[in-house]
Design a protein around this nucleic acid. Structure first.
Lengths: 136, 136
DNA sequence: ATAAAAAGATACCAAATAAGTATCAGTTTG
DNA sequence: CAAACTGATACTTATTTGGTATCTTTTTAT
C-alpha cells in the first residue's frame, strides 16, 4: 500500500520544479520537463491552485508560481489536496464508531502513531527536497 | 486515506477474538459475535491462515486458532497479509525508479519515516490490544 | 453410512477510487 | 485577432475494494 498516491507524487515534483524556477512556469513546460501527461498535470496544478499552494496567472505568458515560500509548503499539505486526511483506520463497527471507542487500546496506539506521522510529514518542506544545483 | 483497510481491520478484530477464546473458533461464531459478513470474514480468515497467522482445522467442530502466541502477532503482520508492504511512495518516473534515486532527498526522508512507521506498527501486538476482561 | 458442520479453493460481481482524457470558456499579450 | 495560457467540468478507463456464491474436501455425531 502506498502512502503517497500518484497525483501527490506528481504534484510534489511539479511544485519542486516551480520552486526552482524564477518567474512563471506553464503546464506545457512542466509536462515536457518532467515527462508527465499534460492533461493530468493540468488537473493536478489546478487542484493545487484551489488548495492554495499555487498562484496562477491566466493568459498568454501565464503560468504558475508558489503561493508561499518553498520552506512553508510541506509534503503533508500537498498530499492533503489529493488524499484528504490521513486516517490510520476508521475503526468503525457497523458503520458507527467502534463502541469500545473510549477505551479501545488499539485506537489509542494508532492515534499516537498517526499524530507522529503527521508531524513528520509536516516537517518535510519542498525547500528541503530540492537539490540546489538541480537543473530543472 | 486510510492506513489500515477494512479487511485488515476485520482481521484484527477476528484475531483478537480468537486470541481471547480457548479452543477453536469458527467463522460462523465470529461473524455472529462481531456482526461481520460471514463470507467476507471467511475469506479473511483463509488469507490469515495462508499467511501463517492462523491455524485451521477442518471438519465438524473445526475452526481457527492462533498459529503463534498473541504477543508475537503484530498489527504490521496482519496488515501485510492484505495490504502488502507499506511504501510511502513508489517514487517512480515513467515506470522506472526515479533517476535521482541515489541522491533524492525526498526519498531519504520518506524512507526514514517509513522505517519508523514499520517499527511502531510491529510493536503493537494483538496481545497488547485485548482488554483482558473483555467478554467476547 | 450418512448427514451436518466445518474449512479450502475459486470464480464472480458491484461500487468506489485512481488515473487520465477531452472540451469549451475566459484571459492576456504579441 | 489569434496564439498561448489557465478555469471549469464532464467524461472515460483501469484498478482496487469489499464483498457474494458455489463447489469440494474433511471431520464428527448419530
Amino acid at each position: 500500500m502506498k502512502l503517497i498516491t500518484r497525483d501527490s507524487d506528481y504534484a510534489i515534483r511539479a511544485i519542486s520544479c516551480i520552486a526552482a524556477t524564477k518567474g512563471l512556469t506553464s503546464v506545457r513546460y512542466l509536462s515536457q520537463k518532467l515527462e508527465l501527461p499534460y492533461p493530468f498535470l493540468r488537473k493536478i496544478l489546478q487542484a493545487l491552485t484551489q488548495g492554495g499552494l499555487l498562484f496562477s496567472i491566466k493568459g498568454r505568458g501565464g503560468g504558475f508560481k508558489l503561493a508561499k515560500p518553498a520552506k512553508k509548503i510541506s509534503i503533508l499539505e500537498v498530499s492533503r489536496v489529493f488524499q484528504g486526511k490521513f486516517i490510520l483506520t476508521e475503526h468503525t463497527f457497523k458503520g458507527k464508531i467502534c463502541p469500545r471507542f473510549k477505551v479501545c487500546k488499539l485506537k489509542k496506539q494508532l492515534d499516537a502513531i498517526e499524530k507522529d506521522l503527521m508531524f513528520k510529514l509536516k516537517k518535510i518542506s519542498i525547500d528541503s527536497i530540492i537539490e540546489k544545483d538541480e537543473n530543472f
